[in-house]
């Protein structure tokens, strides 16, 4: 490995450390399960270090790594998760980390999160990128490798069902 490659790998490594919580959250939303999120997030870090030489200095590391995680999940790990079936939660079952009795938790926020997690995988992933991470449509479609029209239709569908669900819940509580 040349000195330059070594430097780039170090840059990627240093960048991944503070990015890891966001990467892990993204993986939770994509996979719907903390165990799978751990696997995908770790695998994405390994892949990012292996491919560090492809990272263009000065571009955004977060988008690049999210894209790596997305591809890993869709191309490799998702089918493993489906095959394993039995012992593992199915892909339809959403499991979120337990906040624990002492953790600071906002109960309404958790309900909102569960509603988002109840959306189809493609929709909730797009919601996370645009409404939580704050990416533009253009950035989200690059991460997900889909046309911009697909980003728009996923968000329109997500908005329709979330608006309805959250209004119903609010109505029930008030």
């Amino acid at each position: 490995m040349s000195l330059t490659q070594d430097t780039i790998q170090n840059e990627v490594r240093q960048g991944l450390i503070p990015l890891f919580p966001r990467l892990w959250r993204y993986c939770i939303v994509v996979t719907g399960n903390p165990d799978r999120a751990n696997d995908v997030a770790q695998a994405a870090c390994v892949r990012a270090l292996e491919k560090a030489h492809q990272f263009q200095a000065g571009t955004k590391l977060d988008r690049w790594v999210f894209r790596i995680a997305q591809r890993l999940w869709l191309n490799e790990l998702r089918s493993d998760a489906v095959r394993q079936g039995g012992g593992m939660a199915t892909l339809d079952e959403i499991d979120l980390p337990d906040p624990g009795p002492d953790a600071e938790t906002n109960a309404y926020a958790r309900q909102v999160m569960m509603e988002v997690m109840g959306l189809p995988e493609a929709q909730r992933t797009t919601v996370l990128l645009v409404y939580v991470e704050g990416y533009s449509y253009r950035e989200a479609c690059e991460i997900l490798d889909i046309p911009i029209g697909t980003v728009m239709s996923r968000l329109a569908a997500a908005r329709t069902s979330l608006t309805k669900k959250l209004r119903t819940e609010k109505g029930m509580m008030s």
Binding site: R13, I17, F20, Q42, C45, P99, V112, V116, L162
Partner: peptide, 28 residues
């Protein structure tokens, strides 16, 4: 019917960052 409070969604996912495990050892 589309007027979702996206700020609410943004805030709702904030706590997940607090629950993230530490960065893997391979990052040194």
């Amino acid at each position: 019917a589309l007027a979702l409070d996206t700020e609410l969604i943004h805030d709702a996912f904030g706590d997940l960052l607090l629950q993230a495990p530490g960065a893997p050892a391979l990052l040194g």
